[in-house]
């Protein structure tokens, strides 16, 4: 599920199937989801309400909250001004957020391409990364047209639009990354060194507003996703075979004969030259 679920503007009544915090905790209950919230609307502290309860108070732009362990279900999320006394006059939402157990989500409050506040629920990829690699997820949550992501000057992601994402798996290391208008190499953000750590999903959000010249990067990391090597080949000669492997020793002997023979040929050729 690498496509974000667009929930902005979708209002389906109260809708909460699971009351906040009262899910039964028996063995048959699936693992809860991990839900984080990113505030990527410039300049505006907010409160975040879940099923009518104030869950994040005076939440600042550029901050990331969570992860909050939520039992599977559908939650009603509303975002209000920071001085609101209830969620009856939301700036964003209320939106219904369906959550599956044992998954990782980030709810991003951000601007749409036109600069209006909105919210997008992203499902985070928490599958194991190949051994020695890290995952880089790039999400466009800024009031800006489509962008390219440049790594070392080359476009590695092209034409990414608000509120889409793209996921890359890369050898662990540090890349010099920049965000440019699609088709351009002139950076709107960066270049900045981004560490792609082994076994970590590094999620980078481009946020802010191009018109206001305040585009920024926000970063979220999900660790513990390292894959294991698929084997250890720790011997090549057959000198230490257990339980008897005379064939191996014969093989080594034959190779020695071949090497000696080759050396003799080289000597013979040099002698003729």
């Amino acid at each position: 599920m690498r496509t974000p679920i667009r929930i902005a503007g979708v209002v389906i009544g109260a809708g909460a199937l699971t009351a906040f915090g009262v899910a039964p905790a028996n063995a048959a209950t699936p693992a809860p989801a991990g839900v984080s919230v990113l505030h990527a609307v410039p300049d505006t502290p907010v409160d975040v309400w879940v099923d009518g309860e104030r869950t994040l108070d005076d939440f600042q732009p550029g901050d990331l909250a969570g992860p909050l362990a939520l039992p599977a279900g559908t939650y009603s999320v509303a975002i209000t001004a920071a001085d609101a006394t209830d969620d009856s006059d939301p700036v964003i939402g209320p939106v219904d957020v369906p959550v599956e157990g044992d998954r990782s989500y980030t709810i991003a409050a951000h601007l749409n391409e036109g600069g209006e506040p909105t919210a997008t629920v992203f499902a985070n990829d928490t599958s194991a990364a190949p051994a020695g690699q890290g995952r880089l997820t790039v999400r466009h949550t800024a009031a800006a047209p489509a962008v390219d992501v440049l790594a070392g000057g080359d476009a590695v992601i092209e034409g990414l639009e608000n509120p889409d994402e793209q996921v890359l798996e890369l050898p662990a290391g540090t890349i010099s990354a920049a965000v440019a208008a699609a088709g351009s190499t002139d950076p709107l953000i960066g270049p900045a060194d981004v560490q792609v750590a082994e076994g970590v999903n590094t999620i980078v959000y481009a946020w802010g507003s191009a018109d206001d010249d305040d585009l920024e990067l926000a970063v979220q990391t999900i660790t513990g996703l390292g894959g294991n090597p698929n084997g250890i080949n720790s011997g090549t000669a057959g000198l230490a075979a257990e339980g008897g492997s005379p064939v191996g020793l014969i093989g080594v002997g034959a190779l020695a004969v071949l090497v000696a023979g080759g050396a003799a040929l080289v000597v013979a050729r040099r002698a003729r030259a």
């Binding site: 080949n233 339980g243 064939v247 191996g248 014969i250």
Partner: peptide, 13 residues
């Protein structure tokens, strides 16, 4: 490390 029998064809234990 490695142990067991040795396969000379693949040069692996």
């Amino acid at each position: 490390t490695c142990g067991g029998t040795f396969d000379p064809a693949t040069r692996t234990y």
